[in-house]
Amino acid sequence: MESLNLLTALAHVNVEQGFFYVLAAIAIPLAYGVVFDRNVIRSGFLLIGVFATIAGLFFLLQAQFLGLSQILIYGVGITLVIVIALMLTNARQETGMNPALPANVGLASFVSVLVFTTIYLSLRSAEDWPLKNESSLSLPPNIEMIGKHLMTYYALPFEFASILLLAALVGAVMLSKAEPASLANAGDEAEQAVDGTDRV
């Protein structure tokens, strides 16, 4: 009788649970693909897939605003990452190369399995989750709630976030800007090249 536990548990799967497992069964292979695919660019596209499924999970959790902003931010953001990857990786070098550093594989597998086991066991062992069973139907729409919180109680963190973004923007521009000296050199070389061709 006891061995039927799993079957009975599976028989009581409701719709939300079914959607959850479908999304999980999409997200996990895609996440493996991100890590193991030989081509960085394709793994970038797979990463977008992972984020889309996570957005789906957010919809399941009735966080519509967050799901939509996840799509909005990552749809474009990761595309940008892919574009930069396209610019920086040499396809000829990359093909046929193992994406993983072999020296780290054993340690990494051990650590990741350990992390998962630890988290899972602590989840299982916790019994006193402070759950609240308020019916979510009577609640205000969450976009309204989020707006209210961001503008009142969390206004200061919100401002800090904007300052952080500004700093990141300026920092990124500074880091990725070509150095003036090298720029000048490049310009000179180009001019010389042009001159040379003219003379020839």
Binding site: F45, I48, F65, L68, S69, I71, L72, G75, V76, T79, I143
Partner: peptide
């Protein structure tokens, strides 16, 4: 907001 989010996908 929904349409804005969805319309950012085609770039991908």
């Amino acid at each position: 907001f929904y349409i804005l989010a969805v319309s950012s996908i085609p770039v991908v």
